[in-house]
Write a protein that binds this DNA or RNA. Sequence first.
DNA 1: CATGAATGAGTATTCATTCAT
DNA 2: CATGAATGAATACTCATTCAT
Lengths: 196, 196, 196, 196
Amino acid sequence: MGRVEENKKLKLTCLMDTAFQLFTTQGIAKTSIADIAQQAGVAKGTFYLYFKDKYDLHEKLVIRKSEQLFQHALEQSGYQDQPDPTGKLLTIIDDVLYQLRDNKLLLQFINKNLSWGIFRRAIGKWEPDYPAIFEEILGSIPSDRKSLAIEVYTILELVGSTCYTVILNGDPVDLDTYLPYLHRSILAILDSFSAT
Amino acid sequence: MGRVEENKKLKLTCLMDTAFQLFTTQGIAKTSIADIAQQAGVAKGTFYLYFKDKYDLHEKLVIRKSEQLFQHALEQSGYQDQPDPTGKLLTIIDDVLYQLRDNKLLLQFINKNLSWGIFRRAIGKWEPDYPAIFEEILGSIPSDRKSLAIEVYTILELVGSTCYTVILNGDPVDLDTYLPYLHRSILAILDSFSAT
Amino acid sequence: MGRVEENKKLKLTCLMDTAFQLFTTQGIAKTSIADIAQQAGVAKGTFYLYFKDKYDLHEKLVIRKSEQLFQHALEQSGYQDQPDPTGKLLTIIDDVLYQLRDNKLLLQFINKNLSWGIFRRAIGKWEPDYPAIFEEILGSIPSDRKSLAIEVYTILELVGSTCYTVILNGDPVDLDTYLPYLHRSILAILDSFSAT
Amino acid sequence: MGRVEENKKLKLTCLMDTAFQLFTTQGIAKTSIADIAQQAGVAKGTFYLYFKDKYDLHEKLVIRKSEQLFQHALEQSGYQDQPDPTGKLLTIIDDVLYQLRDNKLLLQFINKNLSWGIFRRAIGKWEPDYPAIFEEILGSIPSDRKSLAIEVYTILELVGSTCYTVILNGDPVDLDTYLPYLHRSILAILDSFSAT
DNA sequence: CATGAATGAGTATTCATTCAT
DNA sequence: CATGAATGAATACTCATTCAT
């Protein structure tokens, strides 16, 4: 990579990081492009060399942050050490939840934007053959492709939506209190699917 | 109600309906007060006789739409006819889902706005003693107050988040295909809670 | 006309006059909307209540100024006192030319914008049955409608284009020197048409 | 010419052609240097190696296009074969008009820019002693220098302004219909001048 | 009560020009 | 010679809010 190319990547990262900071603290609506540029230490015009507008940047930010979140869980959680597949799954899920608990800005940002579609794209980028991963995790459970997808979808949405309020507001209870209930619910869903 | 009073209510309704239409089609950020007023056929100044600003209107809209949604389910679903408590619950849930399937604008609007907090407020307004309702439904299941709240919360979030994409995009499968899986998951969760 | 209506007309006139002043002295490209608004003593936003943008205003200005020009000639030149039709025509033409000679800003502004189309519109507004006017002037000359239109068009364009440089730059000669040549050319064209 | 030299000329030509295309389709004001450079396939900085700015390029374009137009008429129209001087003149004029009819972009571009002054410059560059050409054409008509200039000027402006709308919009009639009327008008003007 | 003209701060966006590579 | 990333001044445009009628 040439020096120029490197510099460009640096600027892009800087702009995205700055924008993330501002979006999460004051909201996207109240963040102006001038704010982002100034805070990032570049000229206003430079912003437009990298993004079409505020919303373009926002979209790219959502994708990038989602990717990082999943990637961390799959690389750092040590889920491979778990003997049984459900243990692997719960380990991965907990890793994501702990990341979010420790980074509430990220949670707040990702929450309303993290969808099944983005997840699929993120995983797809990281590992084109994503079912392989889940089959590895849920391997012992015989399941056709379609119901596997539904199963993963159901669990992901359950985890995502319940934990948002729990982590952010401690409502109706805090995360550590909630986790056992969540685990039990997930196991119950897994059982119900495998019973088919 | 005097004629003047009636007229005011009419204008208010008109403003809210117009705003709902605009918020859902172009988003709240890109909807201006001028848009709403013009489309509703009133002067810009009139808007301020009814609402403090765009966000005030938005909040009132969320509450009203949520109330209507739940009220319909509790009054029209005929859940009382179901013999067992889980049947009652599933009947109510399905009624809400069918309302949303038939009114995708409403779904889109409610999705990003309808949270656990608002739900509680909505129910609280309609029926100050909301646990009574759920106890009526889930009555046979012995459960303390705290775990009942967690249970209701878990199921609500599961239903809400999974069905959003399913109804709106038919992704990963369409609603009718998904419902059996959802029912099974809910039953599994109920079982897991009652087994405690 | 209500007081408000009157006030609006006043603001519109003021904005147009200011814009004319600025367009002619610094050119349309170098005139900003902020300039116009400030100079006219209104807020920037007010500009947009009356015009879509700079070019909308410009177009309206061209039409208005053209109308005024022709209207003056038809009302003030006293062409009716001329016994013969060609005398009437030349009187009208000279009136326009003298207006332009005495108001070079207007000439410069109108020049590149004054087209057959605008003239027709201007006349049409002032007097829907414009051929009547020219028939009155050129009345003795038997001519079908089509060749009358061509005749008027030819003369108008000849006068317009030749006199622009003559009045503005005195090039190749000044207006008073040029007028006799112009008159002779016009008469020659008239003759050539009537000889058909 | 060395290869480098050739390459430069190629780039220059490409820039001018691209600019011509853009100026005529979207107007000079709405054409940015970035547009021109990108469309021409060179870097923005390269533009400044050839032109001072947009207006410098524009001016050079007007001159070049005018030169080409007149040069073609004087070299290709075969006006020398006409026996009488007015025939020569009309042949040249018609050649120009046919060029413009077949290249409406060129007409549009030249119209607002091609003035008496530029014509003089264009001819002057091509043939420093331009009166000689017209004297050759109009030779038999005894005329002093001043009235010759006025005569040429009058005819040029007549032709230019009338034919613009005629060719471009077919208004009030199309070119082929208009030409006989134009010829007659020109002959009438020539007669009126020679009768002095 | 209702209106809608007026405001002007706030924001987005463009683009000619420079200069290090 | 050629490049194109970076600049930031200049400019257009929006819109919530007020207030005289």
